Simulated scan of single mutants.
Amino acid sequence: MIFKPFRPLALTLKASTAIVLIAFLGGCSLFGSSTKKPQPAELQPVVALVPAKQVWTARIGEVSFPLQANVSGDTVVVAATDGTVAALDARSGRDLWRTNVGAPIAAGVGSDGKVTAVVTRTNEVVALAGGKEIWRQKLAAQAFTSPFVAGGRVFVLAADRSVNAFDGQTGRKLWSQQRPSEPLVLRQSGVMLAVGDTLVAGLAGRLTGLNPLNGSIRWEAPIASPRGINDVERLVDLVGTVSRNGNTVCARAFQASVGCVDAQRGTLLWTKPANGAQGIDGDDRLVFGTEADGKVLAWRRTDGENAWNTDRLRYRSLSAPLVVGRSIAIGDSAGFVHLLSREDGSMLNRLATDGSPVAASPVLAGNVLIVVTRSGAVFGFAPE
């Protein structure tokens, strides 16, 4: 459900203090190590039980930031580090429009099909309509989470734990909600979505429900709590993507836990220890995730108990999963997309791209599975 338009309420926000950022990408460990890196599991031959073929490919430029490809109907919007933003026809891969925002991109892409927004490394939110810039606004801090566009507004989660709301057409700042910041945060995509008339954001280890009218907090539910004695050990952050089913939102706390929250009441349903760095996905029965060591797990949505797990993709630096029909699609650091059974994790197919790491969680537009690689290739796969 998308927010209905509402009256703006302007609030002021003082400039934030400097924060230290940690570049955690993929399944990296919190601590460096002199030990030899584990070798990725060798891929075994696979019988294509779920046939699929490549139907198109496109190029956008190298991707070295936490990209989230955005799907609106038959349009997928992607971006490259050099400032390129492109809307592609998901059926054919052809450009609907393409532009450059004039600065390297730090976070993107958010879109409601009309307004598209990214954040640059110069801490500016840039909004586009039909490939034309309509406004840009300066942020007080860096941002690594794609803007969320809904209800005629652009919402931005910044690295200083602030949530900012802008008018989608004019860029006028409507409000800002500032939460206590920590000395360390993740240089990784966080959590922001709408559930009914509530804006749900990941702030530190909590899912937080905000009133989109004015940014006031309606509820908070902890997925994980800080632990340890120093700043690194106490780092806790929620990472995108999330799994939503009705009012239930399930999310991952970086290298700590996975949990589900009733986003209507703001109550925690369950939480389980989990050592992963990427987001999750799910269906009405199960929640799926990849661990830092390459294990793939399924938890029961009702109570969080383990349904199955597989280690056939160990140490392959896996992406967040995506539910696709009776499969889950997971990208790896060698550019393969693995299709695993939702029922038991068995291998159903393997799709090859250009050999560079998959840059973001795959997305689905209609019946086309879309994958973006670090080298800037975009692939469309469809069932045969």
Rank of each mutant, 00 (worst) to 15 (best):
S92D: 02
V78C: 00
N247R: 13
W56N: 09
Q278E: 14
R316Y: 05
R136N: 14
Q137H: 13
V368M: 00
V101D: 02
T271F: 01
S361L: 00
V20T: 15
P321S: 09
F148Q: 06
V363P: 01
W175S: 11
P147R: 05
V46W: 06
V200A: 01
E343I: 03
A150T: 15
L199H: 08
G113M: 03
A69S: 14
V47D: 05
S216D: 12
Q188I: 07
R187A: 14
Q68T: 07
S356P: 00
V337S: 07
I330A: 05
L351Q: 09
E42V: 13
P40Y: 03
W97E: 06
D303E: 06
G27N: 15
I229S: 14
I280E: 04
V154N: 09
L364M: 14
A15F: 08
R94T: 11
V323N: 11
A256K: 15
V236D: 06
W299N: 02
G380D: 11
R252F: 02
C260S: 00
A307P: 00
D160C: 11
T116Q: 02
A320I: 05
G331D: 05
G131L: 02
P45S: 10
G131V: 02
G279C: 04
K272N: 07
A129S: 14
V125Q: 07
